[in-house]
Simulated scan of single mutants.
Amino acid sequence: MFFSLGCQRFKSEELQNCIEYPDISLTDLKLPNIKSQIEKPDGNFRLYVSNQSFDLIITDIKIFIDDTAVLHERFDVEHQHNWKMFRFSLSKGIHKIKAISITACAEYESQFEIAGDNWAVIDFWTKKHGKNYTPYFSFENRCEEIAFL
């Protein structure tokens, strides 16, 4: 499932005053140091996060699991082959993941299931439309390791 909300009203309060195609420097954006209670080095949910956009070579990505912020960091596209892994301890069952980017005015939300050990990827992308672009996230969740090329 993909969400690209463009000029529509965002669900997240943090994006209510978002300006599309901002002239914002990430050095101006203050990112909080989030200490997640569920982030564990031996967690059963491995989440890989990456910026895959050459239009926004650096963007912020904030991830929520079950409505709780678990990370908010800057991600550089580099050569698109860089994913940062985070591990979380999640109970079996249905969970909710949400990703937002304040600098890109993008939001994504989906449910996923944990049955044991899981590997997931959330990527930030942009689709070009002339001089403009549409930012969006993609998400994939598996019960087997993910191979990156």
Rank of each mutant, 00 (worst) to 15 (best):
S25P: 00
A69E: 15
A69F: 07
S53M: 04
P32M: 07
N17Q: 09
L71W: 01
S53K: 05
D60Y: 05
N51Q: 08
Q37N: 13
F54L: 14
D28S: 15
Y21E: 09
H72I: 08
Y21N: 07
Y21M: 11
E73Q: 08
K30E: 09
Y21I: 03
L31F: 06
V70W: 00
H72S: 08
Y21D: 04
R46D: 10
D42P: 01
E39Y: 04
I38L: 02
P41Q: 11
T27F: 10
L29M: 13
C18N: 06
I65P: 01
N17W: 13
P22H: 02
Q52E: 10
P32H: 04
L56W: 05
I61G: 03
S50L: 09
Q52A: 11
D23V: 13
Y48E: 00
S25L: 13
D23M: 11
T68W: 05
H72C: 06
T59K: 12
D55I: 04
C18V: 12
T59M: 08
D67V: 04
A69Q: 14
I63W: 00
E20R: 15
K62A: 15
E39R: 02
S53P: 10
T59A: 14
V49G: 05
N33T: 15
E20S: 15
S36E: 03
K35V: 13
F64M: 09
I63G: 03
T59Y: 05
N51L: 10
D67M: 05
I65Y: 05
D55S: 13
E73L: 02
D66T: 10
I34E: 00
I61Y: 04
I63P: 02
R46K: 15
L31W: 06
D60N: 10
D60T: 00
I58R: 10
K35N: 14
I34L: 03
T68Y: 09
I65M: 01
N17K: 13
P32E: 09
C18Y: 09
D66A: 12
E20W: 10
S36Y: 06
Q37M: 06
H72R: 10
T59C: 14
K40Q: 11
I63K: 04
L29G: 07
P41M: 01
C18R: 03
K35D: 11
S36G: 00
Y21S: 04
Y48T: 00
T68S: 10
L71T: 04
T59D: 11
